[in-house]
Computed example of a mutant assay.
Amino acid sequence: MHTENRDEMRERIIEAALKRFTHYGASKTTMNEIADDMHCSKASLYYYFPDKHALHLAVLEKAGEMYFQEIEQSAATAATAQDALLDMIPVRHNFARRFCRLELFKVLKDKQLLHSDETFRLAREKETALVAGIIRKGVATGELVTDNPDQIAALYIQSMIGLRLSLSARELTDDISEEEFELVRQWQVQLADIFIKGLKS
């Protein structure tokens, strides 16, 4: 029971931090403010997280879990591989807009978070595996043609990431305007269309 209570408290802290980070931005949020939101002491937060950096990473991991739940559900309900790939784009778009204040680039640059690279690598691999599964289903139904779904999926995801980062990679900033979000969405739709047409030939 004690372990369950600790797990529940840790989850509550992450949820409170996610809510505040999403609204105000991670860098503008203090541990005191999160503690106040939870009506507990700051020491209670430090019992579960050694510092704000660790909490920030836990929040990003939580957001990632939410993203994969949404994207897997979207892929599972799509009628075709083409629909599945195209339906993933608005999920990505809405997720990026909703959580843009989580300051992903700040974490990627932060040398104190030595395991952050591994976390993001695993997330990229998970998304690539999901796309590979969609392509395999498309091949099995005769909708798509390829003898290397894994390689195509890796190329597709890396290309999508490149478009996603292209507007902010110059200064590694999370500040992206609504117009830029929409431009990236349009680029991703065009890129998906090119990939799908190539796999149908």
Rank of each mutant, 00 (worst) to 15 (best):
V145N: 15
F21L: 05
L130F: 13
D7Y: 08
A129G: 05
L163H: 10
N5S: 13
V91H: 01
E182C: 00
I13C: 02
A84V: 07
H56Q: 13
K200M: 07
D117E: 09
A192Q: 00
E61K: 09
K28D: 08
H39M: 05
N5Q: 15
E70K: 07
A154Q: 04
D147M: 12
E70T: 14
M88S: 06
Y47Q: 10
L18D: 01
L167Y: 07
F21C: 05
L183T: 14
A140C: 04
F120C: 13
A154F: 04
M160S: 13
A84H: 00
S166Q: 10
D193W: 14
I34N: 07
M66V: 15
M38R: 01
C40D: 14
L167V: 11
T22Y: 09
I71A: 10
E4Y: 13
Q158E: 08
E65V: 06
T22K: 03
Q188I: 05
V91I: 01
E180V: 12
S168W: 11
H93G: 03
L104W: 12
L122I: 06
D7G: 04
I14T: 02
E182F: 00
F181R: 03
Y47V: 09
Y24F: 09
H53C: 04
Y24S: 09
M88E: 09
Q73F: 14
I71P: 01
I71F: 10
